[in-house]
């Protein structure tokens, strides 16, 4: 206990970012749902429609930020949940790196998808 206090930077910064991304996600997730289920029915989605939306810089930027923040919020949430279950030591480290890699892969793949949806490439 008293011997090994870790620095603030680990727990506190992640805690703060989890909340900040939450604020952003509340708005964007609601917007995303309304736009793609109520304004445009999910069944009527076509590639041309997607392309038209994604080719607007503002929309593209919002969606990309949505991807990054959601990935952080989700992956960090999973990590917290596992740590709270009492995950420790090398197992904890293994899970941490696995989640970081999974998150990075998701962001990379998501970015590729997002670029493919534009008429830029």
């Amino acid at each position: 206990m008293a011997e090994h206090y870790s620095s603030f930077e680990r727990g506190g910064r992640r805690w703060l970012f989890q909340r900040l991304t939450a604020v952003f996600l509340i708005g964007v997730l609601a917007f995303h749902f309304v736009l793609l289920h109520f304004v445009n029915h999910a069944a009527d989605i076509t590639f041309l429609g997607t392309q038209a939306r994604m080719s607007q810089v503002g929309y593209f930027a919002t969606m990309w930020l949505f991807l990054v923040t959601a990935t952080f919020h989700g992956v960090n949430g999973v990590y917290n949940a596992l740590v709270n279950q009492g995950l420790t030591g090398s197992q904890k480290n293994a899970v941490k790196y696995l989640l970081v890699v999974a998150g990075l892969l998701l962001v990379v793949q998501g970015t590729r998808v997002a670029l493919a949806m534009t008429n830029l490439v």
């Binding site: 990935t71 999974a102 793949q109 998808v113």
Partner: peptide, 14 residues
């Protein structure tokens, strides 16, 4: 989120 990106990945081969 992971499934969603996987499904949308079909956009790459359009």
């Amino acid at each position: 989120l992971f499934t969603h990106i996987a499904v949308l990945s079909t956009a790459i081969n359009v």
